[in-house]
């Protein structure tokens, strides 16, 4: 996919975590979660990330918006029109859609689903009262939930429905980029397909971009226009999806096993 307009550009992103040990919690080493990573996401594009299983490397994309603002172009047209602080806020709100792997963990169990989805709208002062309720009801419909479920609590929903609540919350601010961190890995196969289809449908409708992170390369390759494969903090490969399926030589990709989940079990293998 050839993209001319760039929505997000990150250059030379570095994130190291100290590893502490002993009684005094002295730094014993450093985890190079991200080590000089540069990439861009185009408008309406899905950039898939297949990270190595190191847990630390999965948390960075959402965090990067907070501390790499100078390296970020939130949107070519809007940059420069806002003072830096405001620009950061605008970008953060566009990006705050990160979803935790277990959708249950990211939903406050004491809040009703409607309030969870409506919270970003209140925080940013976009709508109040009846107008807010109507907006939330519309979001519920968009993600395939019934508006009368707005009064239910998170535990009353199934795993797939909870993921839909998270998606609705992400959509509440009309973002241009959504960071999806393992959105389907905790779901049953039958529900996973529903959520993947929903994400693709919503993108077609609204034209926003995804930064889609998952360990399952087959899922990443299915949903993405471009795919980046990360290993030990570096991008070892970034390619258009069409090229990715042709080249199967890079050892890390074999480790990520693009074909590990073939549709029919092969007994000879």
């Amino acid at each position: 996919m050839t993209e001319t307009r760039v929505l997000l550009e990150i250059t030379d992103l570095v994130k190291h975590y100290p590893v502490r040990s002993g009684v005094l919690r002295r730094a014993a080493g450093t985890v190079h979660a991200v080590d000089g990573v540069s990439f861009s996401v185009g408008v309406g594009e899905t950039l898939g990330w297949s990270a190595s299983p190191a847990a630390a490397s999965r948390r960075w994309p959402a965090a990067c918006c907070a501390w790499s603002s100078d390296q970020r172009t939130a949107s070519g047209s809007r940059r420069g029109h806002h003072p830096p602080q405001q620009d950061r806020l605008a970008a953060a709100s566009a990006l705050d859609a990160d979803r935790l792997p277990g959708s249950f963990a990211s939903l406050n169990p004491r809040m009703m689903a409607g309030d969870i989805v409506g919270e970003p709208i209140s925080v940013h002062g976009l709508a109040t009262g009846r107008a807010k309720q109507e907006r939330v009801a519309k979001l519920f419909e968009q993600v395939g939930l019934r508006p009368d479920q707005m009064r239910n609590y998170p535990h009353q929903f199934s795993g797939g429905q909870r993921q839909r609540i998270c998606i609705a919350r992400a959509l509440a601010l009309g973002p241009r980029l959504i960071v999806c961190d393992e959105p389907v890995s905790a779901l049953d196969v039958s529900i996973q397909a529903q959520v993947i289809n929903l994400l693709i449908d919503l993108q077609r409708e609204h034209g926003f971009s995804y930064l889609f992170i998952a360990h399952d390369l087959a899922v990443v390759a299915h949903i993405s226009h471009r795919v980046a494969v990360m290993y030990l903090g570096r991008i070892v490969e970034i390619a258009d999806k069409s090229e990715l399926s042709e080249i199967r030589v890079i050892p890390i990709r074999r480790r990520c096993s693009l074909r590990s989940r073939s549709r029919t079990p092969d007994r000879s293998a």
Partner: peptide
């Protein structure tokens, strides 16, 4: 039903995955 619901590298985002209606 679950076999066509699993994405593979050879499926494209232009092709809808076969959904299984309902929930577990």
């Amino acid at each position: 039903a679950s076999i066509p619901a699993v994405p593979t590298a050879d499926t494209s985002h232009e092709v809808r995955l076969a959904e299984i209606p309902g929930t577990v």
